[in-house]
Design a protein around this nucleic acid. Structure first.
Lengths: 151, 151
DNA sequence: TTTTCTGCAAACGATTTGCATACAC
DNA sequence: GTGTATGCAAATCGTTTGCAGAAAA
């Protein structure tokens, strides 16, 4: 995991700077991500569930809207594991921190985070070859985790 | 594009070997992918449209079912460009042909295929480090294509 | 007070499913 | 003939939207 430089108390400023208002809904949605180190890739429904567990009964539509907003602000980012829903994770705000990838177990469906700047130097190579200016990348590895390997 | 070793006339055998029947619907759905070198990443709706243009009026549900089946058989594979639908492409049946990646232009949304075994040697490194056995990977680069680069 | 947010319910679009019929083998 | 595949329409599921009332600035 890249360092998370964004702190909850930065939220109000970040919002107002962009013409948005601070609300309990926004604070608590973001809080869920700080709470949940164990499962860092949450769907809107999951966030909604976690909020319910903490007795915050916000509308699901509001959760969706605020997840979207937090993405716009660069605080969250979307990830897609082809499991039928959009997932969100805390965006690493370290600009160097490209090196955050996912190992996806085809058996138990576990998602493992993997650190390494895999593509060191590679982006320049691609840019040179194809004229494509790279802003970001996403790498997923599919296979079998330690526990599932022996079938 | 890795070589496509799979040929249309292999379809019947591939189907019956797995207990499925050959039907015009299956043949024509696959044919669309052979027809369309220009746009190799088709959604179910698009396949359905292309079939209509050739006067094949198959039900959309059938198209979905057969795309799924062709994936099961390893003839097609799914790709996800986060544009709201599942897309399908001819699976490269060359087992060495891992090296097929996508450059996605954030401006014009064009998808550019890019060849290169980017991750040469890297998979072993990951396996050693994490015990994760890698079967396949998917790499996407987001940025701006040659035409869109200057804004 | 003005504008943005929220909650609700309805709308949506992609995909899936149930079922009766048609077709492949 | 037997079992699978198809077409259609209805169902499903994640997500979005319209709108009236509530809350932030």
């Amino acid at each position: 995991m890249g360092e998370k430089f964004f702190k909850l108390q930065d939220l109000r400023g970040m919002l107002s700077k962009n013409g948005y208002k601070m609300t309990p809904q926004r604070k608590e949605v973001l809080q869920i991500f700080f709470d949940n180190d164990a499962d860092p890739h949450l769907s809107a429904e999951e966030v909604h569930e976690f909020l319910k567990k903490k007795d915050f009964d916000f509308g699901l539509a509001t959760v969706y809207r605020n997840l979207e907003l937090l993405c716009t602000l660069g605080i969250l980012s979307k990830v897609n594991f082809d499991d039928g829903c959009t997932r969100y994770e805390l965006a690493s705000t370290d600009p160097k921190a490209h090196q955050h990838h996912h190992l996806i177990c085809l058996k138990c469906k576990k998602i493992i985070e993997f650190e390494e700047d895999l593509l060191e130097g590679l982006e320049e190579k691609i840019t040179k070859k194809s004229g494509f200016e790279i802003v970001n990348h996403e790498v997923k590895f599919f296979g079998y985790c330690k526990n599932c390997k022996g079938k």
